[in-house]
Design a protein around this nucleic acid. Structure first.
Lengths: 253, 253
DNA sequence: ATAAATTTGTTCGTATGTATA
DNA sequence: CTATACATACGAACAAATTTA
């Protein structure tokens, strides 16, 4: 196997290895040839081999482990989770706990809350003024002791300040919808904006995933009749999480 | 500014530049210092500077353009689109056309259809046997002449073969729901699995985005009462597309 | 339990090609 | 046309993690 000119060598090598993975010649958890072996195979320098492997890593097709090698990543995420439509079925309780329990795993989370001033972005999402006081809570969600999701939520203190739910995790009731029900505000709908990017170092460390793996970022905002009452940034590894939902099509008229 | 030992230099530089972007010192579309300038600033070699920039590119924070420089990417995607809940509001017509028109842009698409045999993955999703005949159609969707979305769809010929909708784009009716209505099959719901990863070379080229940018991949399957009738892989640049939807919370009982 | 070998991670220097200003 | 800036690619060395002997 050798490279022809015209297309960068590292892309040709990435193409070749990608085909082998996609066509099944290299299967999940298989070890790829070592970098020196690939240098020999393709007759290129180490930097070219590493660039090719970096391409495949960014595509989520392989993982590299120092001292061990590069391995084909399972194409189907091992723990497939469902977000979204669960709200309709079980509005009570925390969606995370419900989904995790349903998958036969033990849900846990820890968190840190503190009062702070709303940034411009957060103020926009909550319909308040920049600098207004908000309660900021950072969550780390674990399934069977493995961190799978990060979340940072913001609630305007103009709404929750002085109430029994000012501290998000101090009561016995979990889940945003039941919590707001406690102060007489029933959440009517949720909006979510989903985007994808590579994990930032802090996220990679906290989620215990290799650097640069793709993550899904969900901007979620809870509303009571067009009034935002809570907004959160949620980060999940796309290797362990699939955002899955079901949409009903109305009957033909 | 210099680097201390203990943490890789390229990560320290990425951290520093990331802070400047996130804190607003470097704003959207601002040009970052050139690679030689960064080499001077931090006292490192070119390879380290490039690794740092590659980290930020994978995170979607910057774009690099050969011959021009590296630029801060707009944090809020410029054309925010909505998928999903539109099905409930306007089941008629193509969702893409509806969304694009609603955003004041002109929708267009081209495509290629061919009969082929179902791969194992596609057969699984369609509930048929591997090797069964399917109609495969690759779409390229454009908004105002700019490619924004790729889609590859598969329909079992056991269902559509010999009917008026065997060729997905030969009739006058667009959109999967209305098309299947034409042969008396009313689609009852849609399932979507969303994941994120870096664009593959073919996708980057077709979508006219720089290599390695994060994309969202949506696996969408249409059902008629638990019978899959169409499945598609949809790829969108997360720079230009946000998957957005709204979930209703039922009233308190 | 240790040492050696293997494998990826980080970093330097250097050179040439290609796109843009 | 020239200078600038990023893209690709060679060679080399040492560090860190893991596996093997």
């Amino acid at each position: 196997m050798s490279v022809f000119s015209g297309r960068p060598a590292y892309l040709q090598i990435a193409d070749d290895l990608r085909s082998q993975i996609l066509e099944g010649a290299l299967q999940a958890d298989d070890k790829l040839p070592s970098e020196p072996a690939l240098m020999d195979d393709y007759g290129v320098s180490r930097i070219v081999v590493r660039q090719a492997l970096d391409v495949l890593r960014a595509e989520g097709l392989i993982v590299k482990q120092q001292g061990r090698g590069s391995f084909v990543r399972a194409l189907v995420p091992p723990t497939k989770r469902v977000l979204g439509h669960l709200y309709n079925e079980r509005p009570e309780g925390s969606p995370f706990a419900a989904v995790t329990s349903a998958g036969g795993q033990r849900p846990e989370w820890d968190y840190q809350s503190r009062k702070t001033a709303a940034s411009k972005v957060i103020a926009d999402r909550l319909g308040i003024a920049p600098g207004d006081p908000v309660m900021r809570t950072s969550y780390r969600f674990l399934a069977d002791d493995e961190p799978v999701m990060l979340s940072t939520s913001f609630e305007p203190l103009a709404i929750t300040g002085g109430t029994s739910i000012e501290q998000p995790e101090s009561g016995t009731v979990t889940g945003v919808v039941p919590r707001f029900d406690q102060i007489g505000l029933h959440i009517t709908h949720v909006k979510e904006d989903v985007n994808g990017r590579a994990a930032r170092p802090y996220e990679a460390e906290t989620l215990q995933v290799p650097q640069g793996v793709p993550v899904l970022v969900i901007e979620r905002t809870y509303y009571v009749e067009d009034q935002p009452v809570e907004t959160a940034d949620i980060v999940v590894s796309s290797a362990r999480y699939v955002l899955s939902y079901r949409l009903e099509i109305p009957p033909r008229t």
